[in-house]
Design a protein around this nucleic acid. Structure first.
Lengths: 207, 207
DNA sequence: TGCTACCGACCGACTGGTCGGTCGGTTCAG
DNA sequence: CTGAACCGACCGACCAGTCGGTCGGTAGCA
């Protein structure tokens, strides 16, 4: 029935999140996921058409959750630049708490080869768009000087990404530890239009 | 003999660079590489013990070349911060010219699963160390304020990485186009000790 | 209440293709 | 004649996906 169906599907997604995070795409066998779910392989294929489809579903689920959280954090801030900062903090904090999730989202997809390229563009594009949107509004609000916000957004995304991935692989510094420095250099890299005495009012941001 | 040996080995490395860059690790078959080299599979295995070993050799070769170029560019500059900037420019320009190389170096490795993790740490660590070294010397030289240069180096690395990867997947903006903006925000994110305009004495960063 | 027909969820042995790696054989320069 | 370099048919592990079958539940009917 429908309810049981949903539950089982979710159980599979949950198990897959763990498995992919621990072992990567190729190392994770459909039998592994079936095992973790107390399902047979056939049972699994009743719920998902393919292993690839499963992986994409996992990615979508994680990316959606993270985007919602980031946008929620940003929405609580009055100023655009404060919003971007809050979103940054939220993402770093969130990923910093769940290493496996970070690994699935930021690393494991590449194992899929060309099948992943489109998905990568889509997911990273969505995050970049959130950042860029905040920056654009900050420009309009006169908080920062006009610049190529698309490039800046990508650079920020990359910086955050590398901090997290490095932590995933080496264990330190944790995203939380890196956050203050990261925030300082990213925000600090933006020019203020009224820069006679920078006097940041963005410093004591809320969140 | 040694000479012929080297030549064939290099031909294999060259072909592998192309193949991995175009198709990724899993999609590239040993037979592909043999074919591109006008060698049989057996001939290939005379020169390399395994496909994995071949991939690592390709990565090492590319990373070494790029590191040498970056360090060379940096060495030509008098000031440390100028050196870091020059290295950044060199890397972006270099990778921007060869999309396939960029793809092998920055993306394809992940396809190998856990076997690659150590290599990733090693290669990225080497690049980060070059940047960090420049930043550290810039601090000593009084060009920038003390900060957590390890984190800053990682962030820079990530920013550059994402710009290049995004270009690899989407074709634009090219690294060369992005360079001015990137340079501005990265360098701009660093505090100058003598800046009367920037008042705050480092609110969040430690060492 | 009992019986039948049916169904969604699940099982697990099996298949079919793929591909890294092997090995006995061949070529040819020295 | 030796052996480094190379050939290419072959092996066998591996694994995503299939398919015929099982089983608990339930709708409909008398």
């Amino acid at each position: 029935m429908a309810v049981q169906n949903e539950t089982t599907r979710d159980r599979i997604l949950e198990a897959a999140e763990d498995a992919f995070g621990e072992q990567g795409y190729h190392e994770t066998l459909v039998d592994d996921i079936a095992g973790r779910t107390s399902l047979s392989k056939g049972g699994f294929y009743f719920h998902f058409p393919s292993k690839e489809d499963l992986f994409f579903s996992v990615i979508d689920r994680l990316a959606n959750r993270l985007t919602i959280r980031a946008e929620g954090a940003a929405a609580k801030c009055a100023s655009p630049i404060g919003g971007v900062e809050a979103a940054l903090t939220e993402v770093l904090t969130r990923l910093g708490r769940r290493r496996r999730i970070a690994k699935v989202l930021l690393v494991q997809g590449y194992s899929m080869g060309s099948a992943f390229e489109q998905k990568r563009v889509e997911v990273y594009g969505r995050f970049a768009a959130v950042i860029q949107d905040g920056l654009d509004r900050a420009v309009v609000a006169g908080e920062i000087s006009p610049t190529n916000t698309a490039v800046v957004a990508r650079a920020w995304l990359g910086a955050v990404n590398e901090i997290v991935v490095n932590w995933v692989y080496r264990g330190s510094p944790t995203p939380t530890e890196a956050l203050p420095v990261l925030r300082a250099i990213l925000i600090g890299g933006l020019e203020r239009p009224d820069s006679r005495l920078v006097t940041e009012e963005t410093e004591g941001n809320d969140g």
